[in-house]
């Protein structure tokens, strides 16, 4: 378990004990089968306990795991005939967002997603998955095309947020995010959004206005990263774990607040433990929703999407509160 996360350490310890006993029993010809069976039982129990009680902070670790599948991994596993398209025609090609045309079960779709790197070099080229305005404008161009040709749009959200830097500001990062949400609200084609890893801030939502929003079991989605929130509100970034709990960032929380429509289960321990299985589960979830949406006419799709976001929010009126008291 080289990819083990800090909270998984107790599990790794039991596992290494089991392996040690096995080794000894073979080398020294001693029968440890009872002890091994006991340890294996303990392992399963521990595993069950650990993964059914993950805290928000644990989930962040899974969502940020370096081998967690990325957009391009899902594209390769779920779609056929993918052709990647590049550039915003205005400034450049931002590799922090990838997109193109592909087929899902034979249906041509436009697929777009944030793209984190696989290693340091790749991460530098992709700016660690934090887009500049040209990334969002590339996404906008591809979505406009999808709308023109009547292709459904599928997006994958996985970013720490839009790039916080002078170059992004000078080129209008705020406007690029706003423009995408504005445009997505009007598209006359089905849009299915999946939060696959970290959905952080407007940088995620800029490709996240869909008829259906799905979320992987251990993905997180929040208004900004818990580290950022902790440094602003608590003036202390090290309180991120506490902030992660307070901000209610897990898939269960979001389902409760009607910000997402469905939680897609992950293999035990997270998507990185079995990417093939994850791609399969996710593909069937997307397909189920897409098939429903493809039956709707363009006006219905626009209305459905508008109403979905229109009703999000919790507020009260002062007389109601007074009455309750």
């Amino acid at each position: 378990m080289s990819s083990e996360l800090p909270f998984e350490r107790p599990l790794a310890e039991v596992k290494s004990k089991i392996e040690e006993l096995r080794k000894i029993s073979i080398e020294k010809q001693i029968d440890f089968s009872d002890e091994i069976a006991k340890l294996e039982e303990r392992y399963l129990k521990l595993e069950e306990e650990l993964y059914s009680n993950l805290s928000a902070a644990d989930k962040i670790q899974i969502a940020r795991h370096p081998s967690r599948p990325t957009t391009l991994d899902y594209v390769a596993a779920m779609f056929t005939d993918f052709i990647e398209l590049h550039g915003d025609r205005l400034f450049g090609d931002d590799l922090a967002i990838v997109g193109g045309i592909a087929k899902l079960n034979g249906v041509p779709v436009t697929v777009i997603g944030h793209q984190k790197g696989k290693d340091t070099k790749d991460n530098i080229a992709r700016n660690f998955g934090s887009p500049h305005p040209e990334g969002y404008r590339k996404a906008l161009r591809l979505m406009d095309q999808a709308n023109k040709f009547g292709r459904p749009i599928i997006t994958f959200l996985d970013t720490k947020g839009a790039f916080p830097g002078a170059t992004a500001e000078e080129r209008g990062i705020g406007e690029s995010i706003a423009r995408n949400m504005f445009a997505m609200a009007r598209y006359r084609v089905p849009i299915v959004v999946v939060v696959t890893g970290e959905g952080s801030s407007g940088g995620a939502l800029a490709i996240g206005v869909g008829n259906r929003v799905l979320m992987l079991e251990h993905a997180v989605y929040s208004v900004l990263s818990p580290e950022g929130a902790a440094s602003i509100l608590f003036k202390d970034a090290s309180q991120a774990a506490k902030m992660a709990e307070a901000m209610k960032i897990t898939a269960n929380d979001l389902l409760r607040f009607q910000a997402i429509d469905e939680i897609v289960p992950e293999p035990r321990g997270g998507a990185h433990r079995n990417p093939e299985q994850q791609a399969e589960t996710l593909k069937s979830a997307i397909w189920k929703h897409l098939r429903e949406l493809m039956k709707m006419d363009p006006e219905q799709l626009v209305k459905d999407r508008y109403e979905k976001f229109r009703k999000i929010g919790k507020f009260a009126f002062i007389h109601d509160v007074v009455e309750q008291v």
Binding site: F257, A259, G313
Partner: peptide, 24 residues
């Protein structure tokens, strides 16, 4: 956005932008 309402706050960005699209 208002951190104390996290995801609900984030979604107000989509809600207002969608309303502005209709208005436009």
């Amino acid at each position: 956005a208002r951190t104390q309402e996290s995801i609900l706050s984030l979604m107000q960005m989509a809600k207002t932008s969608a309303a502005l699209a209709r208005f436009s």
